[in-house]
Design a protein around this nucleic acid. Structure first.
Lengths: 242, 242
DNA sequence: TCCTAATATTAGGATTAACTAACCAGAAAT
DNA sequence: ATTTCTGGTTAGTTAATCCTAATATTAGGA
């Protein structure tokens, strides 16, 4: 009598509070740019999502109508509490999935981001919670980004980048930018991964290289790369600089 | 210089042979109805996908243009070799994901179908292959459906349903219909799961109940339910019927 | 204050994938 | 052979999400 009549439901909004993939991407991006509170420029959203600015204008108008964000033309957007919650749910999914792929399936760390980017819109909360449980409820993803709790709370601690650290100071890498596979492979090669301890030996002026000591080795990286590496300065500058 | 410019790629067709979620659903459904070879009626597709027949006409015309199936108006559709391959890829994803959820994450068997239905369009082949490897390359999913190989080959053995089995015969359950959670919970309660051995004690006429012995217990099910249970008759009818 | 550059928006269009309503084809039954 | 019924199709919309091109707004500098 029923056999085949169910469940070929599309991935799109069915019930009131079900969001489409694109909508989740907008909210997530807005949260990540504005840390959930600051007003965000539509052009910045467009750049991050790699779409035309005009497309963003149209979308944010609709999202404002749905109460997910507040929007005044030419003035940028701010997430509402509802939008914030939706954004954090998506961010949690993304980061739990990244962690799970990396830990449980040994997925290469430079590719977990792209895979999670697609799965985050398809995985149910239940699945994500099971994944988190299976790998011991991690609090950060493989790139060091904090994972929001089931209740939607996330550690918002801000860190300085390796590019801002003065010569002579030591620091622990807490987080690296996660979306460029090539860069991630390079960083892994250099052992610049969350948890690693580095000491800044010297900083050449005029965008010059930054020399580091990391686990005994000496190496130099450009300021552009250094700016992608967030660190926690060590209180004790055990700096045997030279 | 790059930081945020990548990877917010939409889930839709980017490269030539990348298929959208709906397209994958059509191909999968057409394969499942026609076993990959038989011509399939558009209305049957519509019913399985729970969409209007008119929608199917439009879609199959486009799929025919893309070379995924051949279509003559009023004559039904048949998958091309290309369409067949795409369908089997999707079916493999679905069934590997179901198996993985069930085995690795202890996901309840009545809910793996719905979860896989969404994930199958988002998971990469690489992820699916890793999942399959992680759980020991299963050849059937939790409901007993055969899993196509990486190369796109699937066991097409046909079985009879429990409803077709004569009184006195024993059989091994090989497969149950997978998409009705409530029915699956009921079947699990009755221990009618792939691998179980049943003996048909009697069959009442006029759509009457079918009495079974299964692992010592006696029970009766309706013919509608029995038709959803595929079995492999045991060569030795060890039927101590009475 | 006024102009210009940077930023943001509207206008108009495409695409995908669904819908309803109305019309057509072919097989079975008179 | 004509009617009828089922199944299948076209026609015309709608909604979401993107686009390009043209226009508007704001803010900073002369």
């Amino acid at each position: 009598m029923k056999s085949q009549k169910r469940s070929h439901l599309r991935l799109e909004a069915e019930t009131e509070d079900m969001l489409t993939g694109p909508v989740e991407d907008y909210l997530k991006t807005i949260y990540e740019i504005g840390r959930g509170t600051v007003s965000v420029a539509t052009n910045d959203i467009a750049q991050r999502l790699a779409i035309a600015p005009a497309s963003v204008s149209g979308m944010v108008r609709r999202l404002a109508e749905q109460g997910l964000l507040s929007y005044e033309r030419y003035r940028g957007v701010t997430l509402t509490e509802q939008g914030r919650r939706a954004a954090l749910r998506t961010i949690r999914r993304h980061r739990v999935i990244e962690s799970y792929l990396s830990i449980a399936l040994n997925y290469p760390w430079d590719r977990v981001h792209d895979e999670a980017e697609r799965l985050e819109h398809a995985a149910s909360d239940e699945l994500v919670d099971r994944m988190a449980e299976a790998i011991g409820e991690p609090v950060v993803d493989p790139h060091g980004a904090p994972i929001p709790s089931r209740e939607g709370l996330m550690d918002e601690t801000e860190y300085v980048s390796l590019g801002e650290l003065s010569a002579g100071y030591g620091a622990r890498v807490v987080r690296v930018s996660d979306d460029d596979p090539e860069m991630l492979r390079y960083l892994a090669e250099l052992a610049i991964v969350p948890g690693a301890e580095v000491i800044v030996i010297s900083r050449a002026p005029y965008q010059g290289p930054i020399s580091l000591r990391i686990s005994g080795h000496l190496l130099a990286i450009g300021p552009q790369l250094a700016s992608q590496v967030m660190v926690e300065p060590l209180t004790n500058p055990d700096a045997p600089t030279h």
